[in-house]
Amino acid sequence: MAKKDKIRLATVWLGGCSGCHMSFLDLDERLIDLAEQADLVFSPIADAKAFPPDVDVTLVEGAVANIDHLELAKQVRAQSKIVVSFGDCAVTGNVTSLRNRLDVDDLLNRVYQEGPGRTPTGSDPDGIVPALLRRVVPLHQVIPVDAYIPGCPPDPDRIWTAVSALLAGEPVRLEEEMRYFG
């Protein structure tokens, strides 16, 4: 019997603290099972520069907070079969969106102009620092999302439940105790 093609898995890190990725690594020995079934084709913990084509499943951590995130999100959607909002920031905006009650320019001025350090050029895209969006939004407000894994971070059991369902080609169904935000 010919060996079944491995699933092409990607994880993406947008506006978040990488806690979801840490929790992902906490899958521990289950990572070995995962590696047998899937190839990690793009991830902050893998060395790939560009988001590859024909990805089967992409887990997206973090909210959409700047122009780069927006662009990457669109690329992810175009090149993945299934996109999963991975963790509270991607699902709700969470901590990343706490800045939404403030004006972006005020925020930048306070942090960079009034505080110590070099002076950047505000929120205008200057090609070096990606411009901030006026408001941080959850992933599904920018691209269609297929499944949601809440949690800050989602604990490894939650991640495993979701990922193993995806590997088996089934829809993600989290039990009630795995659906809590926070």
Binding site: H140, Y148, E176, F181
Partner: peptide, 18 residues
Amino acid sequence: QAVAAIEGMDHVRFDYLH
């Protein structure tokens, strides 16, 4: 938080008003 989990409200489609 509990009621949202029980009812399966897993994401919010509306604008967060913040």
